[in-house]
Design a protein around this nucleic acid. Structure first.
Lengths: 221, 221
DNA sequence: CTATCATTCAATTGATTGCTTGATTGTTCT
DNA sequence: AGAACAATCAAGCAATCAATTGAATGATAG
C-alpha cells in the first residue's frame, strides 16, 4: 500500500459515491430495488444497450452495491444490502434541500399547482383496512404483476385518461410507483387533480412498502 | 429542457454523488465538519495546492454541499447543511459493510489485535460527569484550540509515546479525533493498548459530539 | 460436439476530470 | 493610487469515463 491508510479508506468511500454518480446507475439501482433482475430485463427497462448496461452493472458490483449470481445462462443481479436504498434516499434529500434546480424540476411536474403532502405508509395501511381509499399503482404492468400493494389498481400514465371514468370521484386516490426516485406518481397525482379528483402520493414506493414488512400481492391477485 | 424530467432529476442526484466521489473532497468536507474555514487553511490541512483546493471547493459548491462568503480578502467556506454529514456517514457504513477492502484497511490499523467497540457519546458524557475516564483528543493542536470536549487532553499521534508516562494506567482512556472518517483515534487506541492501557475509541468525533448539542470548550480551556 | 443464447470482454471515440503552472480578479492597507 | 494579499480563472496535460461496436466466453439444449 503506497498511500496512507487514511487515503486508502477515503478512496473506498469515494468508490461507492462514484458508483452513484451516473443517472444510468441510479436507474439500475431503482429497478433492482423492486427485486432481482437479469441483465436483459434491466437493459430494457432503463433503455440502455445490453453491453452498456452490463458495464454499468459491473461498476456497481465493483463498489459492492450489487451482487450477481448465475442462473442457467442468465446472470441475475440484486442489491447487496437494503442500506443502499437509505443511501440513495439521503442523496435525494440532500439534493432536494440544497439544489434549487431540483425544486424547479419537481415544481414543473405538478404543473403550477401545489401538490399536497404525500400520505405515509402507515396512514395508507389504516385507510386500506377501512376501505376508504382507492390505491393506484402507476408502474408498467409487468412490475405490477411482480408484486403490488393489495387492492391496488394498475394503470400507466398513458392509460390514465381512459380510466378516469371508472374511478369513484368521492373516494380519495393514493398513487404510488417505484419509489422516491420515480416520478410517475407525481405525474399521476397532477393529472388526477386537474380532473377534479382528490389525489395524493404515497411516501416512497413499493420497495419501501415491502421493506416495512407490509403485505405485497404477487402475480395479478 | 431536452431530457425528460426523470433524467434531469437523476442528474441532479448524481451531481451530489459525484461531489463525494473524490478523496480530496471527502477530506475537505471532513475539515469543514469541524467548522468553517478559509481556502488557505483547508489547502494546508489537506495537503492540496491552493488552486487545486479552490477547484475542489467549487465542485462542492456546484453540488450545493458547501456555501461560501467573503470576509475581508478571505473566502470562508462552510457546510450548507449538517445532513451532508449523515450522507457521508452512511456512505462509510455502506462501504464498510460491503467492501472487504475497507475491513482489511481498518484491521491493518489495529495491528492484528482486535479493537474494542467504541464508546457512545452518551456513555462518555456520563463517565465524564463521574470523572472516571481520561479523554484524549488526537487532533492537531490548532484544531484542539478551536474546540474540544471539556476535560480532554490534547496530543498528536507522534507525541503520544512521550506522554505515556503522564497517563494514569488505572483509568480507562477514550480517544477521539475528527469523526468517523478520521483514523487518528483508531491508531491512538492501538498504540495505547500495545502499551497495556485500557483504551477505547469514541463513536464519531468532535463534529458529532457538537451536533448532539454537547458542551465544547474553545481556545485552550 | 455443435448450435444457441445471455452476458461479458476488448477496442475505439469523444467528453470529462484532476492536477499543475502562470495570469487575473477583488479586497485591504498604506 | 499603488502595493500586497487571498482566491479564482485559464490553459494544458495525462488519466479516466461513457457509450458504441464487434468479438469472445460460459452454460444449456439438441
Amino acid at each position: 500500500m503506497s498511500t496512507s491508510p487514511k487515503i486508502a479508506l477515503l478512496e473506498e468511500y469515494a468508490l461507492v459515491a462514484r458508483a452513484l454518480s451516473a443517472p444510468a446507475r441510479l436507474m439500475l439501482l431503482e429497478q433492482l430495488a423492486q427485486g432481482e433482475r437479469g441483465v436483459e430485463a434491466l437493459a430494457e427497462k432503463t433503455g440502455l444497450t445490453l453491453a452498456n448496461c452490463s458495464q454499468h452493472l459491473q461498476q456497481l458490483r465493483r463498489a459492492a452495491l450489487v451482487t450477481s449470481r448465475r442462473e442457467g445462462k442468465a446472470v441475475i443481479y440484486r442489491l447487496t444490502d437494503a442500506k443502499t436504498l437509505d443511501l440513495m434516499d439521503l442523496l435525494r434529500v440532500v439534493a432536494e434541500r440544497n439544489l434549487a434546480q431540483v425544486d424547479q424540476i419537481l415544481r414543473g411536474l405538478s404543473d403550477g399547482q401545489d401538490a399536497p403532502e404525500p400520505i405515509t405508509r402507515e396512514d395508507l395501511a389504516k385507510r386500506l383496512a377501512e376501505g376508504s381509499v382507492t390505491v393506484l399503482d402507476v408502474r408498467p404492468a409487468d412490475e405490477f404483476a411482480a408484486g403490488h400493494i393489495p387492492g391496488a389498481r394498475n394503470t400507466t400514465l398513458a392509460e390514465l385518461e381512459r380510466h378516469l371514468s371508472t374511478l369513484d370521484p368521492s373516494t380519495e386516490i393514493v398513487a404510488y410507483c417505484r419509489g422516491p426516485y420515480c416520478v410517475y406518481a407525481h405525474q399521476a397525482v397532477t393529472a388526477l387533480r386537474k380532473h377534479g379528483f382528490n389525489a395524493r402520493r404515497l411516501e416512497g414506493g413499493l420497495p419501501e412498502w415491502r421493506e416495512d414488512g407490509r403485505k405485497v400481492l404477487v402475480n395479478g391477485d
